[in-house]
Design a protein around this nucleic acid. Sequence first.
DNA 1: TCAAAAGTCGCATGATCATGCGATAGCGCC
DNA 2: GGCGCTATCGCATGATCATGCGACTTTTGA
Lengths: 184, 184
Amino acid sequence: MRDELERLARTGVRPDWSMVLMDLDLPGTSGIEATRQIKRDLPHLPVVILTVFEEPATILEAITAGADGYLVKRTPVRDLLSQLRAIASGGAPLTPGVARTILSFIRNGSRSPAGSGEPAHLDLTAREQEVLRLLVQGLAYKDVAQSLGISLDTARSHVRAIYSKLQVHGVAAAVARAIRDKLV
Amino acid sequence: MRDELERLARTGVRPDWSMVLMDLDLPGTSGIEATRQIKRDLPHLPVVILTVFEEPATILEAITAGADGYLVKRTPVRDLLSQLRAIASGGAPLTPGVARTILSFIRNGSRSPAGSGEPAHLDLTAREQEVLRLLVQGLAYKDVAQSLGISLDTARSHVRAIYSKLQVHGVAAAVARAIRDKLV
DNA sequence: TCAAAAGTCGCATGATCATGCGATAGCGCC
DNA sequence: GGCGCTATCGCATGATCATGCGACTTTTGA
């Protein structure tokens, strides 16, 4: 794959495909990284993410990696094709749920997760940080659950673990800690 | 229009429509401002922008004003209905071109354009700021009430006013805004 | 390879929150 | 001397949260 890309970039040969559907559910090497590679070598080749992941972090990562669109797999095929056609006319396909997440990023002033300062995750697991970040965005449990594709009870479990580790008892306090201590 | 909204907000009458299609091509008063009003008075009423404007500044303004979607008028009717349905399932309808603009905002690290739109004056009263500060410290309503020597219901009232002014619907979101925007 | 940790899910219940709809009173300001 | 705003208080109800308890699967590490 890598070599193939380099050959294309070097020879300038127009590939016989017009866009890349990037599956993030790949073993090993990250689809995000692959996206970054492609956009570096072939900036004009549209890359559309097609995945089951709906985590805000993943979405934001993909976008910053240069993805031109982000579709989730449960999108009906009919809508999916219609969305993909959008890219031909210079648009960007996004499924509604993804769009919602992105709008929320905008409203809250987006902050790149792969940015400068690394969060001082105080024993918080990756998932817990994820949940905490969504809480900071003001999402309710059910929205957190939906965003992460987990059940309401599982979301509760994570929150419980967060409270325990941060030694707080309430979403307000947790959010305050999270922001002040740059946990997110 | 303004009066109509106020009447709705006051009487609580459920309108016989379930979302607002906001046309930005209005003479005089800004549709953006109208959107802000609506989201403040009727937060749950989805507002979808439908306009011919595709300028990034306009789009970003609309989003930060609380718009739940942004569609451009040259969208085919078929797709348009499909998009609007998205809002019923908690999604956000965006036309591809708009999505593209928004993605670029994200990549470049968006920040509200200081230019056109008002920075949304958050004139919290002194009392409201006090309440908010206590919430940021992680206190529950009853503790806030006790701290200020007021009743639980009064505390509720203040919180309600805060939510309305900050356009949030939860203590988590309020605390996040308070800290980020240095409201306290 | 086995135990610990992480992640998932469920049920249940009391506490708290979010919100709608009032209402009264003081205060500055035309 | 009425109007608008702030601050106060109350009732009611549905939604959400906090928390305890238990259990299963996958991942990870010594």
